[in-house]
Simulated scan of single mutants.
Amino acid sequence: MSTRVALLYAFSLFSAAMLGLAGGAVWMVVSMYLRHSAPWLALPIGGLLALTIRTCVRPAGTGAALLAAAATLLAALYVNVLIAGVLIAGNMGLGLIEAMRTAGVGMLWQLARMALSPADFAWTGLGMLVAAWLAWWRRRRG
C-alpha cells in the first residue's frame, strides 16, 4: 500500500470521526430542546452520516458502510457523554466545558453508561444498520 493510499484511509477515518462527533452534538441540541433523551434520533442521524460519508468521504461500498456505522456509534456515545456533562453543569451551576473538565472522562463515561437503557442500544443498532445500508447501497444504472 502506498503512502498516498494510507493517508487517504487515515483522512477518511478522521473525517468520519469528526462527522460522528458533529452528529452527536446536533443530537444533543435536539435532545436538550425536547428535554428528554431521544434515542430514536439514531435513525436520521445515521442516515445523514451515511449520505455525507458516501458523498464526501468514500464512494458507496463496504468502506463507506463501515465508516458510517462507526460514525453513528460514535455519535450515540458522544451524545450520552454530552448529556451527562450538561446534567452535571446544570446541577453544579458550572459552564459545560468547566463541568466536563472537572468531572473528567471517566466520570462522564460512567454516568453516560448508567443512563443507557436497552432501548438506547436497540435504536443505536438500528441507526448503525440504516447508516451501513445507505452508505453501501449503490443505485443501479441501466
Rank of each mutant, 00 (worst) to 15 (best):
V26R: 05
G61P: 05
P39W: 07
A50E: 00
I83Q: 14
S117Q: 13
M32V: 05
R138V: 07
L51A: 11
V57P: 02
A50W: 02
V79H: 07
A89F: 11
A135G: 06
T3L: 12
T124W: 10
A131D: 00
M92K: 12
R58N: 03
G85F: 10
V79W: 07
L21K: 06
Q110T: 09
A6D: 01
W40P: 05
A99K: 03
L43Y: 07
P118N: 10
L111T: 07
W27P: 02
S12C: 02
S15F: 02
T3W: 10
I88K: 05
L111A: 14
V81T: 14
I97K: 13
M100R: 01
G63I: 02
R101W: 00
A115F: 08
L73G: 15
V130L: 15
A68P: 04
R58M: 09
G104N: 06
V29Q: 07
L96S: 04
W109L: 15
A10V: 02
G93K: 07
A103L: 07
A76K: 09
Q110P: 00
L94I: 00
I97C: 11
T62Y: 08
A75W: 07
F121I: 11
V5K: 06
P44N: 11
L82N: 08
G125W: 05
A60S: 14
V79D: 01
A60W: 01
L134R: 06
L19I: 02
L74Q: 07
G47A: 15
W27F: 10
V130G: 04
V30Q: 04
V26K: 01
L43R: 11
P44D: 03
L96Q: 06
L67H: 07
L73R: 02
I83T: 14
G85L: 10
V79M: 08
L67V: 08
G61Y: 00
W27C: 04
I45D: 09
V105K: 13
A84V: 11
A75T: 06
M32F: 04
S12G: 14
R141N: 06
Q110L: 14
R138C: 02
G46H: 06
S12N: 03
L111I: 03
R101K: 10
R58L: 12
S2D: 13
